[in-house]
Simulated scan of single mutants.
Amino acid sequence: MKSIATIFFCLVIYTQTQAQWSGSPNVTQAGYASIGTAATDAKLTVSSPNTTTPVLSLSATGTVANLRMGVETNYAWMQSYGGLPLRINNIGNDVYFNLGGGKVGVGTASPDAKFTVTESAPGAIFSMNASGANAYFKMGLAADYAWLQSYGPRPLRINDSGNDVLFNVGGGNVGIGTATTDAKLTVKGVIHAQEVKVDLSVPGPDYVFETNYKLLSLVDLNKYIQENKHLPEIPSAKEMEEQGVNVSEMNMLLLKKVEELTLYVIELEKKVSAMEKQGK
């Protein structure tokens, strides 16, 4: 209570000497103090009829900056006046904002998330680094896309602890080395992997070994090759160059041709064995 009284006394002296506020200072029996208003809704209530000047100004002898607080028509404000930064909680313990709700905006008076940062021009919006690190993390916006990177240059490691990483669960494609994506994952360049597992989109060709499978005769096969310069059902070189190759589908087609080739070899072996028997 003594500290409140001391602050109030100082403010009374200041207001009386400077004559900046109209109205008499007021102290209630409940220990509430007010300046510029008879209504007290806190231990100390200060009211000013002018919204263009600060309501409270704090400064120290020899300092260039001073702390100011005030109100405008539709918002309250605080600032370090004098062109120097406003440091919040300079001793280093935790700082909490809006525990009861609400949003925080930086560079904007219309935040649309818990924390919204707006920059007037494309570029880096967020930068994070550590003492002694050769790289630092940046996030920003270009004219038509958002970006994040490890700046330095050093690699950007995503989920370095090793658990799962999910991309575009709700839809959309991912591109590596290209901004034009025509599949869930589009890579412009070489893919190096220890092992690749592909789910089949077409049935396996074991039906070739069924008794009712109609195998093309070697005469008809030869005629087709002479006319088309590629095997039946296998796309031409030009088609593969223009349209690419579906790995799952192509592997099954190649397996089918190997199985058909096996049937041709078995059929030829039967004919050779029959001819050898006749020669005896």
Rank of each mutant, 00 (worst) to 15 (best):
F115M: 13
A130M: 02
K114N: 08
V104Q: 12
A121F: 06
G102E: 05
A133L: 03
T116P: 09
S127V: 09
A135D: 13
A130F: 00
Y136E: 01
F137T: 01
L99H: 04
P111F: 09
K114H: 04
A130V: 02
A124F: 01
P111W: 10
A109F: 14
G105I: 09
L99Y: 01
E119A: 15
T118M: 03
K138Q: 15
G107K: 13
A130Y: 00
G107T: 11
A121L: 07
T108M: 05
G132D: 01
S131R: 03
T118Y: 04
F137Q: 05
V104E: 09
F115W: 13
T118H: 06
A113P: 08
G105T: 12
G123S: 08
M128P: 00
G101E: 06
V106H: 07
K103A: 14
A130W: 00
F137V: 02
S131F: 01
G102M: 11
F126V: 15
A130S: 03
V106W: 09
A124Y: 00
A109C: 12
G107P: 10
F137L: 15
G132E: 01
T118F: 04
S127E: 12
F126Y: 11
M128K: 07
A130H: 02
S110Y: 05
A124L: 05
T116K: 09
A113K: 11
S110T: 14
N134F: 02
T116D: 14
M128I: 03
G123C: 12
V104D: 10
S127H: 03
Y136F: 10
N129I: 02
F115N: 11
S120A: 15
G101D: 02
G100L: 14
T108W: 04
A130D: 00
A133G: 07
N129K: 13
S127L: 04
G105M: 08
K138E: 14
T118L: 06
K138D: 02
N129S: 14
P111K: 11
K138A: 08
G123H: 10
P122F: 11
F115L: 15
V117F: 00
A121H: 05
S110G: 05
E119K: 14
A124D: 07
S131G: 01
L99K: 15
F126R: 06
K138Y: 03
N134K: 12
T108N: 05
N129C: 06
A113V: 04
S127I: 05
F137M: 14
A130L: 03
T108Q: 05
I125D: 01
K138F: 00
G101C: 08
